[in-house]
Design a binder for these strands. Structure first.
Lengths: 221, 221, 221, 221
DNA sequence: GATGAATGAGGCTTCATTCAT
DNA sequence: GATGAATGAAGCCTCATTCAT
């Protein structure tokens, strides 16, 4: 993963830390101004080092974009397992995973928009790498769904289609944030829009199980 | 609408036709290469005239982007009323509007992606104009929903939120086309993902009415 | 003179009138914006006809500049004989010629500046033509001076040098107008600066004659 | 003074030396071809570096013009005090200052013409800065004149008007050089035209003092 | 390893000039 | 004769990338 981008500097620890600076600066700027309107010097200044140095850790301006988008997608991917830690009930896991996912997107805000907006500018290999990462993230949601199906709580024709339904509605919170924040809140959005995406697929037993879970959550407070 | 972009040529018919050429060329290229990687000369060549001529019909390269995005959004907006022509039953109207909308997006394909990707590069006034157009398109779906509510077929807390749910799932077909086309078809996507967005809101009467409608459609074939 | 600039239109009366329009427009614009910052379209618009038409009366944008500068210099040249009409006394003729010259320059204002500023942009033949015209104008002043010398009123080593002295001090009124108008008036400037240029050359008889003339002018009022 | 033009390079010594190259190249070219007919690439080539580099030392092509004109006017301004070094007699100082001024103008030749020709193209702030510099130069001549008045050698109604008289006659040597060099020499021009500008203002004592000075100069040889 | 001055290709835009109507 | 749309060369300027220090 690291080697898909070339660095001339040897020390891998240094490479990692420099690239972290680089990527943080890049994400901030790409969000603010977009990829093309951000100059390499902008990135260098924001990252706190000289323009020339960038080319010791990256082959290309495009590589910076790739590292930035990769960082964003990886962050998304890491948060879900963290949130699922300790949760065992399949339906509870699905709910938890979705909520975690939505809240990462909300926090990362326009980074999501960034992946939609600027992916076009990547070389094909990098595009593919990102799509693969996204698939892996989605696979975690799909796994939760399949567990629910195995438990008899859910029924659906195509798991991945349902996954995508959830994913895009979640993404939409970031993509259409300019309008949605005027008419609702994140919590309401999750409840009304995101969760509704899969509730139509609940089996009768699933529904009963859900009621039980909510009652438990209620009394647990 | 026309005057938000300045032309030095007087004849409005000529302005219209030249701009149509321009916009067609621009949409094709922006889809292929993105806004920033497309040069003004590229556009001129694709449109079939000289580079200088562009500036008789447009003040700016950005203006071309605006005209292109505007064209896309307007096309979306025009197809819905056309499809609704002659349909009177509120629920049938909702279904028809949604299907029409999805099929325009499918046809215009990556143009939708374009609006997400490149809107950033517009001047604020142009961004606002596009958002207004989008709101107007959405309002047509909202109106269908409200008719269904008035008829007692649907119930929902926030009409516009439901509208956005539908809209983003529809857009997702274009945004995630690279993956979705591998796992489903447009028809299935509409049935499983788009329509499911509102069916959770059907009232019992609504459900019965829907069954009746589908039976009618069946026998009409 | 006319033929140093080519016209495709035959009718000489038309050529004259069109060119007059052209030149008037050009002088106004060149004064305001300079030669290079004035576009051919600007000139056409100011003159009240289409851009293409200019090329029927002129070969070049440079030709317009030449016609404009020529017009200015010719105007200067024509006013002096007009003012001298009926004046016979040599010293009175000199005074009259200088005053006339200064007042034309004051009226034509920045046109003078124009000849200094933009002559550089002319083709050599046109530069020469203008210098010749300027020499002819100066020759009229020189003639007055020589008459005064012949009458014994003036004495100077080099007539043309004295002429130039007068000319440049007169031009300075236009060239340094931005500052001079803050510290004096045209009348005072003529009295203190322009006329002083030659009064050092008056012979004793010349001085006496001058006193007589002024007394005459006084009593004539 | 330096900061009225922006540079992205930090090192002030480098800025100074690069700008000196730039200005030297620019003055040569502007004299030869005028400001508008000189391209930025021309300047770069003449200065001996790449086109892009110019924009590290200057914001604009116009800024180059400003620096060039500023350099010219400043040179004029610096030579006068240098020439006055050690001269104490007020009348001698006036004569010395004028001669120094004329000889700078003669050496800088067409640079003077440049200030008349191209000032138009400057932004207002830069125009004002140059006018201020010119005023300061003139003030040095005015001071000499006032000393002479205080000593009783000269009498004049308006000191600054007399200063301008001297200045423009001196400038004329550069402006009308194409003709004047045909009919006279610099020395004769200074004697007959420039100095005559103020000799009419000599008081009787002033005249006597002048004779004494010249006698002294004579015997000193 | 780090700096930042230097390079130079290439983009957007203007505008003198032509030419079909 | 007049119009003004169309052409295309060329200018200014930006910026990714290199390289001497």
């Amino acid at each position: 993963m690291l080697d898909s981008v070339k660095a001339t500097v040897e020390d891998p620890a240094l490479v990692r830390s420099r690239r972290a600076q680089l990527v943080a600066a890049a994400i901030a700027l790409f969000n603010r101004q977009g990829f093309f309107s951000t100059t390499v010097k902008d990135i260098a200044r924001e990252a706190g080092f000289s323009a020339g140095l960038i080319y010791q850790y990256v082959g290309d301006k495009q590589d910076v974009l790739f590292l930035a988008l990769q960082k964003i997608v990886e962050t998304n991917k890491e948060r879900i397992p963290a949130a699922l830690e300790g949760v065992t009930d399949p339906l509870a896991r699905l709910v938890t995973a979705i909520e975690a996912y939505c809240r990462v997107l909300d926090a990362n805000g326009d980074a999501v928009l960034l992946t939609y907006r600027e992916s076009k500018s990547l070389k094909q290999a990098h595009k593919d790498a990102l799509k693969q990462l996204e698939r892996e993230t989605n696979a975690m949601l799909s796994a939760c769904i399949e567990d629910c199906i195995a438990s008899g709580w859910l029924r659906t024709e195509k798991v991945e289609l349902l996954t995508y339904h959830i994913v895009v509605v979640a993404h939409a919170w970031a993509l259409k944030h300019w309008r949605l924040r005027e008419i609702t809140t994140l919590d309401e959005y999750i409840r009304l829009n995101v969760h509704s995406a899969w509730q139509a697929c609940l089996t009768p037993q699933g529904k009963r199980h859900q009621v039980r879970l909510q009652a438990g959550a209620q009394s647990a407070r």
